[in-house]
């Protein structure tokens, strides 16, 4: 069993989920409550990874973060390293790839909140940030759990984007799905089977744990418990 690859996958999924919550929450909040125009444009961009083949997304991320692109050059100037074929590069790709899986459950959860609850909080002296943490977050908790579960699971399961952006460096960018692919290519079915089973069991246990703890988290679509 490829423990190193499992470690890379879990690390990647964890950090992707953390970053997605930090980025996705304000984005989802703006998409729900914001007054700005052009929201439909942002919505479309956020949803793109759902319809694009991972290779297309991976290709553009590779181009955008390469040493010849402005982003790539900026990152190199700041850190002295290159983004592609590094764990950080993989993280950037994973965040973009799983963005809809974090943002959409959050938007759905925020939309379910009566706007007047926010107004009631304002009249009771709560500023926007306090209102967010004391009213919006507790009421949108199922949405947050769904966003966490889906981002994590989706990142663990990604393959195409990782292959395009991360390559196959053991301990750095070689994730479980790539490791299994490699073993199968090398006809090591036993090793592939072990790792695959480990991944299957892990994913199943996580989902069972989450769904048994919270009946209001939805798997892939909004569901009333």
């Amino acid at each position: 069993m490829d423990w190193t690859a499992i470690g890379v996958s879990l690390r990647l999924a964890f950090w992707t989920t953390v970053i997605l919550l930090i980025l996705g929450t304000p984005l989802a909040y703006w998409l729900t409550f914001g007054r700005g125009r052009g929201r439909f444009l942002v919505e479309a961009v956020v949803a793109l990874p759902l319809v694009l083949p991972p290779t297309v997304l991976g290709f553009y991320i590779l181009m955008a973060t390469g040493p010849k692109s402005p982003i790539g050059r900026l990152y190199e100037a700041l850190t002295g390293r290159l983004l592609p074929f590094s764990f950080q590069g993989l993280l950037v790709a994973s965040v973009l790839y799983s963005l809809p899986f974090a943002v959409q459950p959050l938007v759905t959860a925020f939309r379910g909140i009566d706007r007047r609850l926010l107004e009631a909080a304002w009249c009771l002296g709560s500023g926007p940030l306090t209102t967010f943490f004391r009213v919006v977050v507790p009421l949108a908790a199922p949405g947050f759990w769904t966003a966490i579960v889906l981002s994590f699971a989706h990142t663990v399961g990604e393959f195409g984007v990782v292959l395009m952006v991360g390559g196959n460096l053991p301990g750095v960018t070689r994730t479980v799905s790539i490791a299994i692919y490699d073993e199968v290519q090398a006809l090591n079915y036993a090793a592939a089977g072990q790792t695959a089973l480990a991944l299957l069991v892990f994913s199943f246990v996580v989902l069972v744990a989450v769904y048994s703890l919270r009946r209001d988290v939805w798997a892939l679509w909004p569901m009333k418990s």
Binding site: E119, A120, W122, C123
Partner: peptide, 19 residues
């Protein structure tokens, strides 16, 4: 803004915090 006015508002259908 409403936070700075210190008025009490009783909404038509209460709008209590359900949580």
């Amino acid at each position: 803004p409403p936070q700075g006015r210190r008025v009490g508002f009783v909404f038509q259908d209460d709008v209590l915090f359900p949580h």
